[in-house]
Amino acid sequence: MIVAERKPLDEIIGFIKDCKKILIVGCNECVTVCYAGGKKEVAILASALKMAFLKEGKELEVKEVTLERQCDQEYLEEIRDIIDQYDAVVSMACGVGVQFMAEKYQSMPVYPALNTLFMGGAEEMGVWSERCQGCGQCILGQTAGICPITRCAKRLLNGPCGGSTQGHCEINKDLPCAWQLILDRLKALGRLDDYDRLISIKDWSTERSGGPRKIVREDLQQ
């Protein structure tokens, strides 16, 4: 899932300080699962903003809505009838949702309430960590199912570097060394010999470097 966390309240207030009526839109997908922008977080943000305005002697009218998905044209349509009543939209979706919202409603100011962080998962309750950088050419088949592009701070394809210490990355003792993880797993799989193969220079053109990415599936197009 896409993992995000809420921006500091002051930053959000900065966006909407001149507004009188706002629409806060949550998203029922990833950001709900990571407790950043679901229905509950929408309600919390709405209260916090109203209180902050009251403290300044101002009033803020807030409408709370949580859509099934903000990265989907169909669900974004659900607010078409009400959106014009508001001065701005505060989107609690990831960066994708915020942009889809802005693209759909050209004349409406749309502000992000979240900082979108990474593609990852929950290691345990309250702990999320990154697993994928979407490089567009998955190498997990060569690296025992552990991604060095994501999990090695230097994204070394032929690690570990000289800073790997007792299983930890040199940049942070709380970070496991990706290459230690890969080696441990190769060993568990009885495939340590795989380590001896050099991984060749990567084609990054399918990654961010190649420009914004897009796929077209003609079989699905209407």
Binding site: K154, R155, L156, L157, N158, G159, L198, S200, I201, K202, W204
Partner: peptide
């Protein structure tokens, strides 16, 4: 980190 040290050797 477009390439790593081993790949620089190769280069």
């Amino acid at each position: 980190f477009d390439i790593d040290s081993m790949q620089l050797i190769q280069t």
